[in-house]
Design a binder for these strands. Structure first.
Length: 566
RNA sequence: UGUCUCAUGGUGUAAUGGUAGCACUGCAGAUUUUGGUUCUGCCUGUCAAGGUUCGAAUCCUUGUGAGACAACCA
């Protein structure tokens, strides 16, 4: 009986508040039962994980309710925009595994928007203002104080019409005049205080070139674009909440039928130890503080890709954090858990020795080579196995040996036994140090009866070490990434320049690492779990036999636990 | 001294008037040829005060706290 209840509960996953709205609209038969969303980035930077959250929602809602989702570039400000960004945005959406119905550009609607603006002027709902930016700011008032009317507010319609036309013909310099909607300078909502809807920009547009000299502002372009396309649910982040009345106002002035798009706001993603502002990310790139937009320390989608995150792990993460109207900060641990969960199930286990020291098996024949069978992934019985060469001289992790073992250390130490993963149990007999007191070689004896697969191999020993053969392993470069920022919430540290919060140790490059020969055939973005260390992926920089790995994420606290206890 | 929005463990969320649940984190323990994985257990929560109700996280009132809005950005 309890089984039946469990099944019922599992099948009924709770809806987020947006899905509740959507289902209600559907139940009420709004828009003829049609569902249409859009993902509307401005092509002025690369997509980051915050966008991934919006993408999952926009495309996810469409998919769930048999609707469509279009990609629309909100390209109304030519000064900041570029085709480079258009291309990267499309690539990143595809990588996440989503498919848009159509690609649109707000710039496709410049003529329609211009015509709409002219119509507003003709009905005396817009006028050309000649106040400067400073003067407009001054007469706009403050949130708690009403604004004043512009002296140009009651300019004759014909005059505004004429000036608007001449503005677009390039007769006036940038900033000389603007087109403002005539609404209410005393409105408690600042956005209703005669918002600017068109300004002069002479910078060529990446798609329309120099055709236009006036460009619509966001508030004037966004809702109208939604309307032109037939969007039913226009999902955006919380900071646009105050814009919604204006969004509705313009659409009401435009619409001629029952259809109307509906704006719904959700909480933007904030992650600990991360800045998400495009402006700041652009600065990191421009000032060379990181190696480009796809630097694995960046919170960009391409950065995560290069770091070795899988699309599925990002989607699972977004699924876990949900959509609400509460502005919080998500712990990075949640993202990292999603990655480990996905990679644990799929990545091939290999041996990589990050900080090698030689281990010599004094009773093992000098020239002998045994091929040991290494399981590819114990989580996946279908994944098979590969071979790894075992010889007299091996490399093991320097941290896996202690001359005087601490209480909770159960790896290699004089007179102690450990298992060499997939091979033999060995007993440490001593070590050799150089003049500086550093350990140069460790000696051990092999217990030949304990080879993996043999009856004696079931003997229990406390520790299991990963290793590679000194003569068969290949050198590699390993890049260990830490948090880019030292502050848990760099976006909140308002007094500081955020670059002061950069973590100088955020990138460590290790070049004397040794990895098993199996990896020489690995291809860029292949991901592996280095036994007991972490998840790594092959960096696309790996060329000409040089192998470069990025650490995607460490294994859960493996190393710190040991250090704390020792 | 404005308008709008929000408030559930340390974090992110669910419960849509009917037993406050899930995930992450943390801490214990079991299993383990990865100190990984897996499994088990534990810690920790409805911002406050009133009201409505048989019954309130949920509805109402007041208070408190947080965020957004004063770009010719989106």
């Amino acid at each position: 009986m309890s089984d039946i209840r469990t099944n019922e509960e599992e099948g009924k996953k709770s809806l987020n508040f947006i899905e509740v709205f959507v289902e209600k609209d559907l139940a009420e038969g709004k828009n003829g039962g049609r569902i249409q969303t859009r993902f509307p980035p401005e092509p002025n930077g690369y997509l980051h994980i915050g966008h991934a959250k919006a993408i999952c929602l926009d495309f996810g809602i469409a998919e769930k309710y048999n609707g469509i989702c279009n990609l629309r570039f909100d390209d109304t400000n030519p000064v900041k925009e570029d085709v480079e960004y258009v291309d990267s945005i499309m690539e990143d959406i595809k990588w996440l595994g989503f498919h848009w119905n159509e690609v649109y550009y707000a710039s496709d609607y410049f003529q329609q928007l211009y015509d709409f603006a002219v119509a507003l002027i003709k009905t005396d709902k817009a006028y050309i203002d000649e106040l400067s930016a400073e003067e407009i700011a001054r007469q706009k008032g403050t949130p708690t104080q009403a604004g004043e009317n512009s002296p140009y507010r009651n300019r004759p319609v014909e005059e505004s019409l004429d000036l608007f036309r001449r503005m677009n013909e390039g007769e006036f310099e940038e900033g000389r005049m603007t087109l403002r909607a005539k609404i209410d300078m005393a409105s408690p909502n600042m956005h209703f205080r005669d918002p600017i809807i068109y300004r002069i920009i002479k910078h060529p547009h990446h798609r329309t070139g120099t055709t236009w000299k006036v460009y619509p502002m966001y508030d004037f372009a966004h809702g109208e674009s939604d309307y032109f396309e037939g969007v039913t649910h226009s999902l955006c982040t919380l900071e646009f909440e105050v814009h919604r009345p204006l969004y509705d106002y313009f659409i009401d002035s435009l619409k001629t039928d029952d259809y109307r798009p509906r704006q719904i706001e959700f909480n933007r993603l904030n992650l600990t130890y991360t800045v998400m502002s495009k402006r700041k990310l652009l600065r990191l790139v421009k000032e060379g503080l990181v190696n480009g937009w796809d630097d694995p320390r960046m919170p960009t989608i391409c950065g995560f890709r290069r770091r070795g995150y899988t699309p599925q792990s990002i989607r699972n993460f977004v699924d876990k954090i949900g959509y609400t109207k509460y502005d919080g900060v998500v712990d990075m641990a949640l993202l990292e858990h999603a990655v480990r969960e996905d990679l644990n199930a799929t990545s091939t286990r290999v041996s990589g020795v990050i900080n090698p020291v030689k281990l010599i098996l004094t009773n093992y024949p000098e020239e002998q080579v045994e091929m040991m069978e290494a399981v590819n992934n114990p989580e996946d019985p279908e994944s098979g196995s590969h071979e790894i060469a075992f010889t007299r001289e091996l490399y093991i992790e320097r941290d896996d040996f202690m001359e005087e073992a601490a209480k909770n250390f159960f790896r290699l130490a004089p007179d102690k036994e450990v298992r060499l993963k997939s091979a033999y149990i060995v007993k440490c007999t001593g070590c050799k140090k150089n003049n500086n007191g550093e350990i140069e070689e460790i000696y051990a004896e092999c217990d030949f009866a304990t080879k993996s697969g043999m009856p004696e191999s079931s003997r229990k020993v406390k520790g299991t070490l990963h290793w590679v053969s000194a003569s068969h392993s290949i050198p590699a470069e390993v890049r260990l990434y830490d948090r880019l920022f030292t502050s848990e919430n760099p976006s909140e540290e308002k007094d500081k320049d955020f670059t002061e919060l950069l973590n100088p140790d955020s990138l460590q490059v290790l070049t004397n690492c040794r990895v098993e020969a199996f990896l020489k055939d690995a291809r860029p973005y292949d991901h592996f779990q280095f036994q007991r260390i972490g998840y790594f992926n092959v960096d696309p920089d790996s060329t000409g036999g040089k192998l470069v790995f990025n650490r995607t994420v460490s294994l859960k606290d493996t190393w710190t636990k040991v250090k704390d206890k020792a």
